[in-house]
């Protein structure tokens, strides 16, 4: 078996003096969709924030494409192809939809290709084309989520980190968004790390999953096996 694309080796981190992750190990292979499930405050978002360099690693190492990511600044990590769609969408409210998308391609200089990908985003989410000159803040929740994902894809990432994409959205829109994620994964060979409270949905979408409990990984398995695991069923899937 080849070396994984992303590997966490005993990673510890936190905020201030409070440790949030107590040494976690996980790996993600090329082309996979891997999900992290767990309750609120388990450290899922922290894991993603640490991978994208916003949070510093205290102990342990994160490896990506055969290089250690410790101490690499966020913009550099984006440049290496890891794109993070943060929780709560975090679109730029006072920038237009198109500007938001263009910021997603901030580190790219191939103008022609950016224009093409912009069109591609609009094809993927037609509502965004209609609203391309509106300010991001005026979009509805679902539209903002679409914008956030489209913005993430504008960076032509090798790895897409998705944090709670279903939060606060209507089920129909959620299904739509997860279809897109699967399609992007398959058609554009984008590896996806998915953090999701809706464990049911996450395990249906993903190939493999990790269960995170208060900063420690307690279970890891194929997604369908996790979905049938009685403990997981009881804790996260409503019995």
């Amino acid at each position: 078996m080849s070396t994984p694309l992303i590997e966490f080796k005993g990673v510890k981190t936190g905020y201030g003096q409070m440790e949030v992750l107590h040494g976690i190990d996980l790996h993600v292979d090329q082309g996979e969709i891997v999900t992290l499930i767990g309750s609120n405050g388990a450290g899922k978002t922290t894991t993603l924030m640490t991978l994208s360099g916003v949070n510093k690693v205290w102990e342990g190492e994160i490896w990506y494409e055969g290089a250690c990511l410790n101490g690499v600044p966020p913009h550099e990590i984006v440049a290496r192809g890891i794109c993070h769609v943060p929780e709560g969408r975090q679109i730029f409210r006072d920038l237009t939809v198109e500007e938001n998308l263009r910021l997603g391609a901030y580190l790219r200089s191939d103008q022609a290709a950016i224009q093409k990908d912009l069109e591609h985003s609009f094809d993927m989410f037609p509502i965004l084309r209609e609203r391309s000159f509106q300010l991001g803040g005026t979009l509805s929740g679902g539209e903002q989520q679409m914008l956030a994902i489209a913005r993430g894809l504008m960076g032509k990432p090798k790895v897409l980190l998705l944090d709670e994409p279903s939060l606060g959205l209507a089920p129909l829109i959620v299904a739509d968004i997860f279809e897109t994620v699967k399609r992007v994964n398959k058609e554009e060979d984008v590896t996806v790390v998915l953090v999701e409270q809706n464990a049911n949905l996450a395990l249906k979408t993903a190939n493999r999953g990790y269960v995170l409990e208060t900063g420690t990984i307690t279970l890891s398995d194929d997604a369908d096996k996790l979905a049938n695991n009685p403990k997981v069923r009881e804790a996260y899937l409503g019995g």
Partner: peptide, 8 residues
């Protein structure tokens, strides 16, 4: 003051 951070 200008902290890069988020919820855990």
């Amino acid at each position: 003051f200008f902290k890069l951070g988020t919820k855990g």
